[in-house]
Design a protein around this nucleic acid. Structure first.
Length: 265
DNA sequence: AAGCTCCCGGGGAGCATCAA
DNA sequence: TTGATGCTCCCCGGGAGCTT
C-alpha cells in the first residue's frame, strides 16, 4: 500500500511484480480535496462540495453494485471537468482504492498507511530536518531501541494478562494461542457459534464446498480452514462461516492451521 | 527545451476549543 | 482574557513523466 505517487508505485511494480498494489484511502481522499477545487477545475464551490461528496461515497462503497450506482449518479450530477479528471486518474484503478474492492485483499483491516505515517511523524519529531548524517544515525538508533522496548512491554502485558473465568474451554484455547488483538476480532463470533442452537447457513448438498447465508443473499466457497468472505481474506483469521461450517461437520472449532502466523503468540 | 499535469511535503492564515 | 493547541483551507516549490 502506497500513496498515489507514481514513482513509489512503479518501484513496487518493478521489484514486486506479483504483489497487489493498493492506494492508501486517506491519501486518495486528500488528493480529491486538493485537486477537485474551484481554482483547479474552474467550478463553483457548490459543485466542488457536491463532487467531493460523491467521491467520498465511491471510496467508502461497501459493494460493487453500490459503487456502480453511485458512479452513474455522480456522472450525471457533477461538472464535466471533474468527470474527466476522475476518469483519467482514478476510474481505471478503482480496485486499488475503493473499499468494496480493497476489502478483498489481505490488508489486515488496514485501508490507510497511517500507521507508517505515524511512525514517520514520530521520527521527524526526534530527528530534525537538517541533521548531519551522524546525528541522523545516532537518533535513528535511539528511536529504534525505544520502539523495541515499547513492543516488549506490550508483549509482556499481553502474556501476563489472565483470561476471564467466564470464557469457555474453547475460547481459552483461542485466547492462549492468539494475540489479544486477533482474539478480540473473533471473540464475538466464537461465542455466537457456540451458543447457537441452529445454523443460519445452507450448504451445497453435493460436495459441501459452498455456504449460503439464509438471511442475506451471500454465498461463499468454503473449506474447514478457508473462506471467500472479505473478513477471512483480509485478516486470515477464522470467520463466522468457517466456525459454523466446522460446527456443522462436528469438528472442534479450534485448529492450529486456522490462523496466519502473524496472529499467534 | 519548455510547458503541462499530477502528486508530494511543508508551511502560513484563520478559526475553534480549552485550560490557566 | 489570554495563550496554547489542533484543525481546515489554501498556497508554494519541486520531482517525475508526458506532450508540444
Amino acid at each position: 500500500m502506497t500513496d498515489k505517487s507514481a514513482t513509489e508505485r512503479d518501484v513496487v511494480s518493478t521489484e514486486l511484480p506479483g504483489a497487489k498494489k493498493l492506494i492508501c484511502l486517506f491519501h486518495a481522499l486528500q488528493i480529491f480535496q486538493r485537486e477537485v477545487t474551484p481554482a483547479k477545475l474552474n467550478i463553483t464551490t457548490e459543485q466542488s462540495k457536491c463532487s467531493l461528496q460523491y467521491l467520498n461515497k465511491l471510496a467508502h462503497s461497501k459493494s460493487e453494485a453500490y459503487y456502480n450506482a453511485t458512479l452513474n449518479e455522480m456522472k450525471e450530477n457533477i461538472p464535466q471537468a471533474v468527470v474527466t479528471y476522475f476518469s483519467k486518474n482514478w476510474e481505471q484503478i478503482k480496485h486499488e482504492w475503493a473499499k468494496c474492492f480493497t476489502k478483498y485483499t489481505t490488508n489486515f483491516f488496514n485501508f490507510t498507511n497511517n500507521r507508517l505515517e505515524s511512525l514517520n511523524s514520530k521520527l521527524k519529531s526526534v530527528i530534525s530536518t537538517y541533521s548531519t548524517f551522524d546525528e541522523f544515525i545516532e537518533k535513528l538508533f535511539i528511536f529504534v531501541n525505544i520502539k523495541r522496548t515499547e513492543q516488549k512491554n506490550e508483549y509482556s502485558k499481553m502474556v501476563l494478562k489472565v483470561p476471564s473465568k467466564d470464557l469457555s474451554t474453547t475460547n481459552v484455547m483461542f485466547y492462549n494461542h492468539l494475540t489479544y488483538y486477533a482474539y478480540k476480532n473473533i471473540a464475538k463470533d466464537l461465542v455466537e457459534v457456540q451458543l447457537s442452537t441452529s445454523i443460519p447457513y445452507t450448504f451445497n448438498s453435493d460436495d459441501l464446498t459452498t455456504i449460503r447465508c439464509i438471511t442475506k443473499n451471500e454465498m461463499f466457497v468454503i473449506s474447514e480452514t478457508t473462506c471467500q468472505c472479505s473478513f477471512f481474506i483480509s485478516m486470515h483469521l477464522p470467520c463466522k462461516h468457517i466456525l459454523y461450517y466446522r460446527k456443522y461437520l462436528g469438528h472442534e472449532l479450534f485448529c492450529d492451521s486456522l490462523f496466519n502466523s502473524r496472529w499467534t503468540r
